[in-house]
Design a protein around this nucleic acid. Structure first.
Lengths: 153, 153
DNA sequence: CATGAAATCAGATCGAT
DNA sequence: ATCGATCTGATTTCATG
């Protein structure tokens, strides 16, 4: 992971359908060198995959919210994790260091659907006495782009 | 936006480098039909772009945190927004309905770098009396995949 | 890491259904 | 709106220096 790798990663995070020639032109590297580095980064798992960015609103998701969940005992974790995995509305699930156990990032078509998920599915699970929902009113910045730092060579 | 569009969007969110032939094969559509629908979805902005998913840890980001920020007066918003835009460590910035003004999603190499950002850059701005940082200990699920709902035809 | 050639593949277009 | 075919150009890959 050197400066060239870093530039490649920066570039393909912004232009995921670039050809090797385009990447090479942007960072000053030959096509074959780009090919080799890309293959290496993919094999190492640094590049975890490729995706299309879909506009959430255009896809019918009018509501974004962050939901805190409290889980009382470890034996109730499994069912919760299963729900998290199965619900595509739950984009993220983080174990946090706070008064709460988990923080979820949730998208839904409307407030009704959000309530349906939180009240009827999540809180219906055993061992979940409380939750707290933070509604997002507007989003000033939202990117999945990851800052790339050079590893200590 | 019909069922076929939905399937296309689902597919390309998981396989962002699929050829039109691969997409068509996966959802049962000809190459030319996929071509037309993709172009339409891109023109409409439903497809906002294409990106490589980079593993945050492999890219040197050992720390993930959510940071709440309180801003006292509207005239201090501009400088804050400018900072948000310029800092690649700040992946998301949401205006939230809560005791706080904003919720940030932040990635950093380590806790020191996180503190540097929060204490020395964010809180150094005028009109920001308080912030609260929630550290993520582990992440059970994290996807940028957006659920695609059919628009009312 | 660059070059260059070869083989493959992908994307746009067209007429027909 | 979709299909199937065709055509053209681009892209990846590989061997060599």
């Amino acid at each position: 992971m050197d400066e060239l790798d870093r530039k490649i990663l920066e570039h393909i995070q912004h232009f995921g359908r670039s050809s090797y020639a385009e990447i090479g032109g942007a960072i000053g590297l030959s096509v074959s060198a780009v090919n080799e580095r890309l293959k290496k980064l993919e094999k190492q798992g640094v590049i975890a995959g490729w995706t299309a960015r879909v506009d959430p609103l255009a896809a019918g998701n009018g509501v974004l919210a962050f939901v805190y969940v409290l889980i009382e005992r470890p034996e109730h974790e499994a069912a919760f994790q299963a729900l998290v995995r199965s619900e595509s509305a739950i984009q993220e699930c983080h174990h946090v260091a706070s008064d709460w156990s988990y923080l979820l990032k949730v998208r839904a078509p409307n407030l009704l659907a959000l309530e349906e998920l939180v009240a009827r599915k999540i809180k219906a699970l055993p061992g979940i006495p409380r939750s707290q929902t933070v509604i997002v009113m507007s989003t000033a910045k939202e990117t999945a782009t990851v800052p790339v730092h050079l590893s200590p060579a």
